[in-house]
């Protein structure tokens, strides 16, 4: 009996020592996974996921505090890529979230009163203008987050869907007449 206890105690001590050493030797400071998740997120900074921006959401995912299906701008595709990175099963977008076609905000120049509220709301500084001056949204920089819509006191901002042109046109998925393809 005594030997058994001794043996187990000795073993425990030895193994504990090895593990202690290893935890010092192989310490990991930062979690580079956050960067990888952040790179997949579309960076609209729209906050629809319930986090104040893409980076906080990425951090929450990496800590396991948030699900991977909370990002509507990323769409099913983004969820799929997150799932691939994290080695989990992809799932449909979360409840109440839906993927919309890419659009940009446009200011109706006849209505804008130059109040600067939208400028302060824009997370990517895509709105230019100054107090009592007409504001303009730089379409190339607008992420379509819609955060500027509600602060506007005169409701002069609306979203416009970006249509494809010759430069952004993509070849469509080839259509089979008879062979049914996997639904997506």
């Amino acid at each position: 009996m005594l030997t058994a206890i001794l043996v187990m105690a000795l073993g425990g001590l030895l193994l504990g020592g090895v593990l202690g050493w290893a935890s010092v030797r192989y310490r990991v400071e930062d979690d580079p996974l956050v960067e990888k998740i952040d790179a997949i997120l579309p960076q609209t900074q729209c906050g629809q996921c319930g986090f104040p921006g893409c980076k906080p959401y990425a951090e929450a995912i990496s800590k396991g505090e948030a699900d991977i299906n909370r990002c509507p701008p990323g769409g099913e595709d983004g969820v799929k890529r997150l799932a691939e990175l994290l080695g989990v099963d992809p799932k449909p977008l979360g409840e109440g979230l839906e993927h919309k076609p890419k659009s940009v905000a446009v200011i109706d120049e006849n209505l804008c009163i130059g109040c600067t509220l939208c400028i302060q709301a824009c997370p990517v500084d895509a709105i230019v203008g100054a107090a009592k001056q007409m504001h303009v949204i730089v379409a190339d920089q607008c992420t379509g987050c819609e955060l500027c819509l509600s602060p506007c006191p005169v409701e002069c901002i609306h979203m416009e869907v970006v249509h494809e042109d010759v430069a952004t046109w993509k070849w469509r998925y080839p259509v089979y007449t008879l062979h049914p393809t996997r639904p997506h």
Binding site: L19, R25, Y26, D31, L33, S62, G87
Partner: peptide
């Protein structure tokens, strides 16, 4: 005793992989 030994070896391996390959670490989960 085997389980304890294995657990210790796995613990060591885990730390080692976490340091050397974070993605593998996350993927192995």
């Amino acid at each position: 005793s085997f389980i304890v030994t294995i657990a210790a070896i796995v613990g060591f391996t885990e730390m080692f992989i976490k340091k050397t390959s974070p993605v593998l670490f996350r993927v192995l989960g």
